[in-house]
């Protein structure tokens, strides 16, 4: 049973990813005190997505995962998108028509 070729990342690469995550945490905290208007949310979420990708790709080994696992994950994100986008198409557009209750 030697066909099992597992990718073992170096400890150094993990430490580098960790340092990137710490840096992003400091950046997101610092940026929160700057008035960017509506872009405060965008900046905070963009940094959070970067951190999520670092954790998922490196710490959770998604970059070494099988195509099936990657496909299933992409599918999950699509479903999460449906949950959020379709709900907000209701809540975020109420009152736009100028008709009470619409």
């Amino acid at each position: 049973m030697t066909e099992h070729t597992e990718h073992i990342d170096s400890a150094r690469s993990y430490v580098l990813v960790f340092l990137a995550l710490i840096t992003l945490t400091v950046v997101t905290t610092a940026v929160a005190f700057v008035d960017l208007g509506d872009f405060s949310v965008v900046a905070a979420l963009a940094i959070a997505v970067c951190k999520m990708l670092l954790v998922a790709l490196f710490f959770m080994h998604v970059r070494h995962s099988t195509k099936l696992t990657k496909l299933v994950l992409a599918g999950a994100l699509v479903w999460l998108g449906i949950l959020i986008v379709f709900t907000l198409t209701d809540f975020a557009t109420r009152g736009l028509a100028g008709i009470p209750g619409r």
Binding site: T28, T29, A32, S40, V41, A44, L45, I47, A48
Partner: peptide, 8 residues
């Protein structure tokens, strides 16, 4: 963390 503590 950003949603509860930071964005506002």
């Amino acid at each position: 963390f950003p949603l509860l503590y930071l964005i506002d």
